[in-house]
Design a protein around this nucleic acid. Sequence first.
RNA 1: GGGCGUGUAGCUUAGUUUGGCUGGAGCACCCGGCUGAUAACCGGGAGGUCACAGGUUCAAAUCCUGUCAUGCCCA
Length: 1063
Amino acid sequence: MAAPKPAGDLDPVSLETSLMQIWSDENTFAQSIEARRDGATPFTFLEGPPTANGKPGIHHVISRLFKDMVCRWKTMEGHIVERKAGWDTHGLPVEIEVQKQLDLMSNEAIEAFGMEAFNQKCKESVWTYEAAWREMTERMGFWVDLDDPYVTLHDEYIESAWWSLKQMFDKGLLFRGHKVLPYCPQTGTSYSSHEVALGYKEVAEPAVFVKFKLADENASVLAWTTTPWTLPGNVGLAVGPDVTYVRVRITAPPSDSWEGRGGAVVDEEVILAKDLMGAVLRHQADIIEEISGSDLVGKSYVPLFPDAIDGTNHPSAWTIVGADFVTTSDGTGVVHTAVMYGEDDYNLGMKEGFPAQHTVGIDGRFVKGTHSQLDGRYVKDCDEDIIDLLTDENKLYREHIYTHDYPHCWRTDHPLLYYAMDSWFVKMTAVKEQITQYNSEVEWAPSWTGEKRMGEWLSNIKDWAISRERYWGTPIPVWICPDCETEHCIGSIAEMEEMKTADSEMPPELHRPYVDDVKLNCPSNGCSGEMVREPYVMDCWFDSGCASFAQWHYPFENTDKFDGSFPVDYICEAVDQTRGWFYSLLAVSTTVFDSISYRRCLSLGHILDKDGKKMSKSRGNVVNPWDHFNKEGSDSIRWYMMTQSAPWSPTNFDPNGVRESYAKMFLTLWNVHRFHSEYAALDGFDPDDESGYVPVAERSPLDRWILSRLHSVAQDYQDQFVAWDFHKAGRDLETFVVNDLSNWYVRRSRRRLWDEADSSDKRSCQHTLHEVLLTVCKLMAPVAPFMPDQIHRDLTGTTVHLADWPVGSKLVESTLPPQNWALEQEMALVRTLAETGRRVRVEANRRQRLPCRSGWIVGGPDISRFHDILADELNVEVLTAEENLERFQRMVIEPNRKALGSKCRQDLPAVLDLLAQADPDNILLEIDAGICILEGYDITMEDIEIRYVEKDGFAASTISDDDVGDVSLVLDMSLDNQLISKGLTRDIIRRIQAKRKELNLEMEANIELTVWLDENAPEISQNDWNHLVNETRATGAELSLDSPPAGIDSFNVDGIEVHFSVS
RNA sequence: GGGCGUGUAGCUUAGUUUGGCUGGAGCACCCGGCUGAUAACCGGGAGGUCACAGGUUCAAAUCCUGUCAUGCCCA
């Protein structure tokens, strides 16, 4: 390798896009995997498949960043990290999109359009934004194999999903039941909660208090409902076991006017919660007795609609039962239970053994046999008639209009019915213990996502309803024999082929409607029935939950790939996936493999807009990543996202923050690189030339300092990566680059490289810069893959992405330079003192360019090897270490509040007062002698801290530092002609240099210079003038006291007028 | 309604686990300085009801209780 390539101006967009081209030409991604192939330990990653039927936004960039970053990091650590892309292609959102497109607003419409054509449209729709996703993925530098992705709609994927379902089926974990869902009879569709949320509307509806006549007692139980249409389906009443109820007798007609139908006669007895008497009753009534809810349990009552439901074999039908969800916040404290029309109702019904029979058909009409006046009618049209029927039979106590939010169909605007749909379930309740155990084996970041969020969810685990009455999805592979009701689950294409009837064709693909047409020969002994497929598709979460094996078409192919990658080492998605993909992966692997499916899971916080609101299409606040790809570039976005906040914290996206990342981190890094590479190119510096190499031990303390800092920062960076604290790692590295490397090392080293002659010191500096830049590039590469690669290529001719991680990996060798803690400490002190000096000057009103005769450093470690640097920084002629504190300083005593507080408690303020008034020397003497008693408390050295402050008359400042103790800087403020001459010279040089820059002169260009001083000006010494001529590269220079020509450059310093001309 | 997060300066945030000295940075703003050093750098200033209200304590951003706002998930 010859001299590094000199860097030019920075254009982040073209830098990144040309690197994308190079990566593509060189196949760098594939190489980074191939390079590790021989015997390397794999680190396995599983991509959570996105859906490509929506445009990618900035919030997709962040999860892809954290996926990419960890994979790149592990690759550099020496692992082989294969990354297969994936696409989630099934599910309701796809159908909805197509329905909107084709204006098919009901299941009838879809079937009229044709399921085959509809599914074809769905399949196409899935790829609508695939190109946009690909472009985003490539532009952001996410390395993933997009050319060989797993796709949930492929037959291979479906076959694996079928196989896994069969495992569950064979273990008896698959069963048929009901799931109560919001359902629109007009579109024939049930809705997800997301869709329900689209359609909440405030409505005023009739609500009724109904009298349920007890079978064996002369009293009625009052219950309340806002859905009279569910009353024919009533099969039970629920009371709170701990709620107090009363039995009351009506004593008089209502005092005020009665509104609406219903009523009660004097001496009639009703039962309701004691707390709700006032709210419910409109009659005068006496309490006959108080009854606890548990005493009501078991009583039977007379069905309202005796023909509607067949209670045979259900002894609990039409009895009172206890339920925890009953409250006395509204109604009567008694909950009317219609098993098929409410989730609580259904669960309670299953628990109590109530009959689970529909009184309402899938078309939203009462089924035949419910009641002669209701049969066949749409339920919502029957409210009035039901109320009339109840009134006629003296079963209504009261009616009123109730206003509440109720879900409506967002397509047809019709009210939704909560309706028990036939559904297939995975019996998750049977594996609760196992899944809880497996969850605790996963390393979660942050830990509470697993322990609390997921843990809480698992502790209330419910059976998983995996079937959907939809068209576009993985078909449920269960066939049922109409003759003998045998159920059979198909686990492979081969099995289907083997079992299908002679008349059935093999389907061209494993989707509806083709698989619907396949009939199977019933395997049951002696049965000759033709089995028919259950018409459902799977919950698409089941699809993605199969990804860990279905991506490999396991167990039909690639068993080695599966065995080598299961459970996967790392997955990463946003926090909303806790009950989504994180759960479905865990649920599937628990039931199928009796195992975890991922070892580590990073759960990311969401990206919100700059006001903390979530980004959504409807708000119009979605940030397009291309706004930044085309401006600051991917590196800046990625760096911003990593450093802005902890990965799991919700982040308000601030476009300004991306700009800041660019301006601080990347521009600074680039300029360091540019500084180094330009001089290196000029000097023909060859990092590999052994004859020019300077061993680290022989380099200057400044070089050894930055190398030691590099070691420390790299070690911390690695530790923080391991602890998932990526944000802290990034911030610290940024501080190193901006503060240590650019603002100190490079600034202090500039003059070393200006020297045109070859020298060991110059080469030391160049080797140091070379080494620091390369290590920084390696550390940054996983996060920001572009600029670090460019710099690495400029300096070495090779890509950083094939380089080894410099620290902390057992698989590759560490390449960090030696660490020297004492040196770091010294330099930290030097820098603090330089800053302190500037503050002292400001306070003493002494401008920086005017030198000080002397400076003293009191206390702290010996930093004499940096006195030249510090003298230069402070613009001090002579800097010395001084031991005599008292020459400049006096002592003060500060209380240690922590120690004193625990000792003195409420007397602390008084003790503090005394301490403040006391003479510090005396206190110290007394403590030494053990006789320091304040307010009765024995004060020891533990209770105080000694500090020093400068005496009046010195320009000084004292810093306090945990590592080095108190250190003072004292500056001599006296002035003489020599100092004034130097100060003036420096001001003139500064002006001339600014002028050179203004004139765009080359750095090597020479000038002709004339300087005119006014008569008040102090004399400039010959030495200073020579220095000025040298610094400004003036070949001809003249100092004149004549009056200057008009119109030339001039400035005023300390009341002296200076004119100068440059040519 | 329930579970889990979050709330600190105009903006983005550190500090909260383990209570203790004047709540620390960056961006933006103001004053000054420095610069062959970049969209940079340095010193100083202004800017804080640590979401709110109670409680515990000599002492609370930090611990406890409640409330509000906001986000995710569930109902």
